[in-house]
């Protein structure tokens, strides 16, 4: 990979300053960024590590729900959210593999917004708030298509606030090589209605399956969606599955997530 200057600030303020330089790129767990840099597809001049900032670490209940620091490891979310938000814990505990979970972070995942990543589904279905050094962004505004987010240049995610649903579940169908989601569905039953977020399936990245949300808000049972169909238009088609196959998985996995929700 190309060489770069490495900096590791210990406060958000210093990180913001470092990110203001030309050619600066934030580094969190690096589990996607490093392979990308090895392929020379990313060539930052300065890499700003966000892993040494205590105020971006940790999982706790707070105002608005469960607060997860942006640099919190997947393994930490899996452990520390187990009692507080079990479906989120399950999701975090199923990302990649153990070594990836010991390094990867929620903030890195959300900033990258890979169309097959797990966390975007949790954030969108939970109706979470993405907190940055500048502002708070509602999940529905945050995701703007494959690898695209509402973040401005130099803006750093500092935490995510998850309202904890009454019931929720995440069901993931693995892409067998990468272990990303071939398709995965996060179903969350909130007091105000059900949200269903799908990752891995669409060319536009994570999305809400609103027909299912309506049906499930009226009747939170797997049979409530049995009459629905998922339009394969715009679904990802690749070696691992056609658009029609992914559309099928959206429905099958949604049903299973509803059945598993607790």
């Amino acid at each position: 990979m190309h060489n770069f200057e490495f900096v590791k600030p210990s406060t958000i303020a210093d990180a913001v300053k470092a990110m203001a330089q030309d050619g600066a790129q934030a580094l969190s767990g690096g589990q996607t960024l490093l392979p990308t840099m090895k392929q020379r597809l990313a060539q930052p001049e300065t890499l700003v590590s966000l892993t040494g900032i205590p105020e971006m670490q940790g999982v706790c209940m707070g105002e608005g729900g469960l607060h997860v620091g942006a640099a919190t490891l997947h393994v930490t979310v899996a452990q520390d959210a187990k009692a507080l938000y079990p479906a989120l814990s399950t999701l975090a505990g199923g990302i990649g593999d153990p070594a990836v979970r010991n390094r990867g972070t929620i903030g890195g995942s959300l900033a990258n917004n890979d169309p097959a990543a797990c966390y975007p589904a949790a954030v969108l279905a939970s109706g979470a708030t993405v907190v940055t050094n500048k502002r708070k962004i509602a999940a529905d505004d945050y995701f703007q298509g494959m690898f695209t987010t509402a973040l401005d240049d130099g803006e750093i995610i500092t935490s995510v606030i998850f309202p904890v649903p009454q019931k929720a579940a995440y069901v993931k169908f693995n892409q067998p090589a990468s272990r990303f989601a071939l398709t995965a569905v996060f179903v969350a039953k909130h007091a105000g209605g059900v949200r269903v977020a799908v990752t891995g399936a669409s060319n536009d990245g994570v999305f809400r399956w609103t027909e299912a949300e309506t049906a499930l808000s009226a009747d939170f049972s797997p049979s409530a969606i049995s009459g629905l169909t998922v339009d394969p238009t715009g679904m990802i088609a690749d070696l691992h599955g056609t658009a029609a196959y992914r559309a099928n998985l959206v429905k099958v996995l949604t049903g299973r997530a509803v059945a598993a929700a607790h």
Partner: peptide, 28 residues
């Protein structure tokens, strides 16, 4: 069940890394 080497019609290898070429893991 898993392994597939696929070239597209222009001869580009679509399965050129472990991200796309699936081999058995312990849980398969």
């Amino acid at each position: 069940l898993l392994e597939n080497t696929s070239y597209d019609e222009t001869g580009q290898l679509l399965t050129g890394s472990f991200m796309d070429y699936a081999m058995p893991r312990a849980d398969d």
